[in-house]
């Protein structure tokens, strides 16, 4: 399947010499929800801004559905809708006027029925005649989404769309994003809420210091880099892990009252290394337990580990090209 967005060797060096992006290669598949994650200043917004035409790249190329963003910018940008991170809105326009303006700006003929549908989808219809400056922050956020959808884009960039919005609105936005994806729109979603990416994204790209550290299917990423942990509560404290269990990755905690087994996804699927095998081993070693529980690392755990390893210089891996 041809990528809807193909990025090759994309770099951006600021006038100060700061490398905002460094040789990024990435393919984004049509119809997926892709979530670039990274700490503040990692380069996520720079990446989006270059693709959308707001920032000029230093080197490299980007094409959207085969259209180069510089030499064929008109065709490329027609396909893109952008919801910026900041609440950049007019003040004295009405909701209807500003959304209609956006549609015209993107070269589309007036279509009141489409504008009405977008406003209704975003619960903005009753505000259509309101002046923008009278709207709350959450409504303005929806308005920016309405403007981005006004010209029926095939690719939608959502740059931290749920920052500072309440739980209800966030859930509404998640539902909207799912509906858009179901209609075939490709969505690039940056967020500071890792659970949002975990909930929504098909694939994750971790960006750190301008480099794309890893690009992976969310499920595969969590399987590959995620850790599982089994905690056993013991009726009697242990002074040390019994020698018969030395082949297992076991650790004692809480004064020997808890025995912790940390393992990865491959070990979980291995009959000789899984939980059942360990429990058999414990029985054979005469170690009893009162209760047990398991925990799986979240995307946030993986993200923090990836970024902190990178910042500590512990992760040598170059940007991984998405094999799509």
């Amino acid at each position: 399947m041809s990528p809807i967005i193909a990025i090759r060797g994309l770099s951006k060096t600021c006038a100060s010499g700061f490398h905002a992006l460094d040789a990024v290669d990435l393919d984004i598949r049509p119809g997926e929800i892709f979530a670039p994650l990274g700490p503040n200043g990692a380069g996520k917004t720079t990446l989006i801004s270059i693709i959308c035409g707001i920032v000029t790249p230093t080197s490299g190329s980007v094409s959207v559905d085969g259209h180069d963003i510089i030499t064929d910018f008109r065709a490329a940008r027609t396909l893109i809708g952008l919801v910026p991170q900041e609440l950049h809105t007019d003040a004295f326009e009405t909701v209807w006027a500003t959304v209609s303006f956006s549609r015209g700006l993107f070269g589309r003929r007036a279509n009141p029925a489409h504008i009405e549908r977008v406003l209704r989808d975003l619960a903005l219809w009753d505000k259509k005649d309101s002046m923008i400056r009278t709207l709350s922050g959450g409504i303005k956020r929806r308005l920016l989404i309405a403007k981005a959808l006004s010209h029926e884009p095939r690719v939608l960039f959502l740059d931290e769309p749920t920052a500072g919005v309440d739980v209800e609105l966030r859930r509404d936005m998640w539902a909207l994003v799912r509906r858009l994806r179901a209609s075939g729109v490709t969505i690039i979603l940056t967020t500071h809420y890792i659970e949002e990416a975990e909930e929504m994204a098909d694939r994750i790209g971790v960006i750190s210091k301008g480099e794309l550290v890893i690009v992976e299917e969310k499920a595969a990423l969590m399987r590959k880099l995620g850790r599982k942990q089994l905690t056993l509560q013991l009726p009697q404290p242990l002074a040390a892990v019994p020698p018969a269990l030395s082949g297992w990755q076991l650790a004692l905690a809480k004064g020997g009252n808890e025995l912790i087994y940390t393992f990865d996804a491959s070990e979980a699927e291995d009959d000789s290394r899984g939980i059942a095998a360990l429990l058999r081993g414990l029985g054979e070693a005469g170690v009893h337990y009162r209760d047990l529980h398991t925990r799986q690392s979240s995307l946030e755990d993986i993200f923090v580990e990836l970024v902190s390893d990178r910042q500590a210089g512990g992760m040598p891996g170059p940007a991984q090209r998405n094999p799509a």
Partner: peptide, 12 residues
Amino acid sequence: TGTIYELLSAPV
């Protein structure tokens, strides 16, 4: 106001 982003990202 920052709305220049829309102008710069439009096919104009």
